[in-house]
């Protein structure tokens, strides 16, 4: 087993626990008490940690016991993901540039049709679609997907479709921008996929694949 200090060991257990906050405090208190009792019984810290098992194993026992009783753990953080998934497109739509403004920017920048269209698309709700879908997938992964393994396919397909579709359309947009702009295509492309969330969505896709492969 990896060498831990007691504090590191406890922290590692705590971060691997998948239980609500109150139960988490309860468990950590009891484990601290357990540690004291074992010290009283004459065990060294290294012996105690070896006997309790790896932090992951200790947390896994608790997780299994609570999942059996209360159903799979659903992270409260998932509501943050859902809020972001809903609010981002709304905010982008409210504050998004209207076509008139977009074309005036286009004129200032010396751009013609395609860029104006791109700028509009980028700031409307559809311009943040990959961000929104990524957050929606995180929301599903943090709760709903944990109830059955097959449910992982929904965020997987969502993220795959959106990131591939978005990457293709941003590549077209980058070509259009490079025709009138000063920078090479790939720079526009990278700027586009970073700002509209394609890279983020792709990241969530990889995370979903990781979840699917995890035993």
């Amino acid at each position: 087993m990896k060498q831990y200090t007691v504090k590191q060991y406890m922290n590692a257990i705590e971060s691997a626990l998948r239980v609500d906050w109150k139960t988490r405090v309860r468990i950590m208190n009891d484990l601290a008490s357990d540690f004291q009792s074992r010290r009283d019984a004459g065990q060294t810290d290294a012996q105690i940690m070896a006997e309790l098992g790896t932090p992951k194993a200790v947390a896994a026992e608790f997780n299994a016991a609570f999942a059996e009783e209360h159903g799979p753990y659903q992270s409260p953080l998932r509501w943050v993901w859902l809020a972001l998934a809903v609010l981002l497109p709304l905010v982008a739509n409210w504050t998004g540039l209207q076509p008139a403004e977009a074309s005036s920017i286009g004129i200032i920048g010396g751009a013609d049709g395609p860029t104006a269209i791109f700028v509009t698309g980028r700031f409307g709700w559809s311009g943040v679609l990959p961000w929104a879908v990524g957050f929606l997938a995180l929301f599903l992964l943090a709760g709903w997907c944990r109830k059955a393994r097959g449910r992982l396919w929904l965020p997987l397909l969502l993220c795959a479709a959106v990131s591939i579709g978005s990457a293709v359309s941003q590549l077209n947009a980058a070509h259009a921008m490079a025709m009138t702009g000063a920078l090479p295509v790939w720079m526009y492309f990278i700027a586009n996929v970073l700002s509209n969330g394609t890279v983020f969505c792709l990241g969530v896709l990889f995370y979903t694949v990781f979840c699917l492969r995890r035993p």
């Binding site: 139960t23 309860r26 009891d30 309790l52 896994a60 026992e61 608790f62 016991a65 009783e69």
Partner: peptide, 12 residues
């Protein structure tokens, strides 16, 4: 028993 089995019982 392991701690991970006992404590959930105690909590219940």
């Amino acid at each position: 028993l392991k701690e991970g089995t006992l404590y959930p019982i105690l909590y219940r």
